[in-house]
Amino acid sequence: MKRIATALSLALLLAFSAQTAWAQTLQTVKQRGQLICGANGTLAGFGLPDPQGNWTGFDVDFCRAIAAAIFNDPSKVKFVPLTAANRFTALQSGEVDVLSRNTTWTMSRDTTLGLDFAAVTFFDGQGFMVHKSLKVSSALELNGASVCVQQGTTTELNLADYFRSHQMALKTVTFATADEAIKAYDSGRCDSYTTDSSGLYGERLRLTSPNDNIVLPEIISKEPLSPAVRQGDDSWEDLVRWTHEAMLDAEEFGVTKSNVDEQLKSANPEIRRLLGVEGQFGQSLGLTNDWAYRIIKSIGNYGESFDRNVGENSPLKIARGLNALWTKGGLQYGLPVR
């Protein structure tokens, strides 16, 4: 009995010592000289190596932006490829400092997993792809359509809900894997294929003739993707959140990778505060005041990262949609630096 008690108290001690270590993530990262970032590794546009073994993608660039803010060097990141199953434990156990792996911010994850979501970097949601020959331009015209979908996913449930709530007839054709579903759609077994819209654009390229298929504008579910950090280290969460906000603000004020040096001389007080010409905002994050300048200089603003990885300048060509700035009809609203 005594031994068990000793072992238990030892385990508790270890757990607590680990807990206190988590309270200063930024200090740990600085001491280590490297940010450890949990990423996907197999999702085109978000986290994927290139043939030379360099990590690329939207989520990957977000981690690089954090590293740039801390070290003024976007390459000081170690990427850890995580699966959907082990991503949260990797974060909880301290194996990674930040989880940037297309993770949907849901209530249960936020409240029960001991982690906090920093900011929605990408508004995703379920969408539809149809054959162009169908001459359909809205999901509401899909009455009676057959839809290929992967079995046993929330995608399948959302699909049924959407059709029911709009009183449309639906023929689902389900498949065990996404690969089979897309093959069946390609061979013409269904009128439409549905999955998260960020995935739709990648799948479209895999079709026999991608240009004969279009992605419909409707988004029928909410999948806000957000980087996550461990609960209990608020200042680290602040740093991760403000990395995103700084990139958004930069886009809103027209500060880009190429013009950031000229913008340092800008008279606009908002730009001056963002780039650290005025105020002590970086210091309050535990960084230098030019933290945002470093991010934009090495990664670019939000729109540049978006276009480069998933948008216009990438093979995926995902439309900005909900991820456009609030000034352009989207939901991305950069918080004020002041």
Partner: peptide, 28 residues
């Protein structure tokens, strides 16, 4: 070993087949 997050030979192929630069019906 891919469950431990290690990219063995097969996993590298699975990662590469998602590359939008090479996404075609025959890539996978």
């Amino acid at each position: 070993v891919f469950v431990v997050g290690i990219f063995d030979f097969l996993r590298t192929i699975e990662a590469a087949r998602g590359d939008p630069k090479w996404a075609t019906p025959v890539t996978a």
